[in-house]
């Protein structure tokens, strides 16, 4: 072991504590239960929970799960980012769902509330429609919290290592990592292309036709540049043994505990149980 950095812990701290990309979906360091779970366990449980809520026929189950999951995510210190996304996506979704389903759901029978409105007399919201809207809403809420919670409490490097250790190809793992880095890079380059084209007299604030033209002028160099970079990058990866067969090792150790394994089996069991109960 070297002098300045010996313990395994140090490498882990170094990687997890490094500066990120400052996005909402970024990994947030921590040591909560969620943080310590094996990433694959988190993925399996997330998928399991999503399956379960889509099987459940009534909105109360998904509602309870949403609350429980949010508490778990909040305990991991991710309440703010997850909450922000939930409000930003969930609020408009809730409004439109309740409006449309509450008024027009085909199986509407029992009146929940009738609001007097001039011109069209009154708006009638039905119980069946509103309950259906809530069912869809909380199914989606569970999906968002589970996936966001997983992403925010899992360092991408650990995610890829965990996946590769479970037999996922290193190419797929690479694509996952690269995709995360890709968006901010593309934004930066799009900005410099925009500037270069404006300098050549491209008018971006003119008629629709000109705007379509400017779109081409912006997208083409972006795509061509990406393709060139991709080719060189493929070579760079190759030269670092990326396509080499044989055993790989990983910079970090991602632990998989008995508890995690039990949790995965439990999730699978729960999915089957719910499926059986719904069908029966």
């Amino acid at each position: 072991m070297t002098g300045s950095m010996n313990a395994e812990r140090d490498v882990e701290t170094l990687i997890e504590g490094a500066d990120g990309s400052d996005t909402l979906f970024e990994y947030q360091p921590g040591s909560s239960l969620l943080h310590r779970l094996n990433p694959v366990t988190k993925l399996v449980c997330s998928v399991g929970l999503v399956l379960i809520v889509f099987l459940l026929p009534d909105f109360r189950g998904p509602l309870l799960l949403s609350i429980a999951l949010f508490a778990l995510v909040a305990a991991a210190g991710a309440a703010r980012s997850v909450g922000t996304v939930l409000v930003a996506v969930g609020a408009p979704l809730a409004l439109s769902l309740i409006l449309i389903q509450g008024l027009f759901y085909p199986e509407n029978e029992s009146i929940l509330v009738a609001i007097g409105v001039p011109v069209i007399d009154q708006l009638v919201f039905y119980v069946e429609g509103v309950e259906f809207a809530l069912l869809i809403l909380f199914r989606l809420t569970v999906l968002m919290i589970a996936l966001l919670g997983t992403i925010i409490t899992t360092h991408p490097k650990k995610m890829t290592i965990a996946l590769m250790e479970k037999g996922v190809s290193n190419k797929i793992a690479y694509v996952f990592m690269a995709a995360l880095q890709f968006i901010p890079q593309m934004q930066e380059r799009a900005q410099s292309i925009l500037v270069a084209q404006q300098a050549r007299g491209l008018d971006t604030s003119a008629t629709l036709r000109q705007r379509v033209r400017s779109y081409i002028a912006l997208m083409s160099p972006l795509l061509i540049g990406t393709l060139i970079a991709t080719e060189t990058r493929a070579l760079a990866l190759e030269s670092r043994g990326f396509t080499r067969s044989g055993e790989r090792t990983y910079l970090l150790e991602v632990r998989d505990t008995g508890f995690g394994r039990a949790l995965r089996w439990l999730t699978a069991l729960a999915v089957f149980a719910v499926a059986g109960w719904v069908i029966a």
Binding site: G20, P156, K157, M177, A236, L237
Partner: peptide, 9 residues
């Protein structure tokens, strides 16, 4: 172009 584009550190 030579960096992997898949590393956070």
């Amino acid at each position: 172009d030579q960096l992997t584009g898949a590393s956070t550190t």
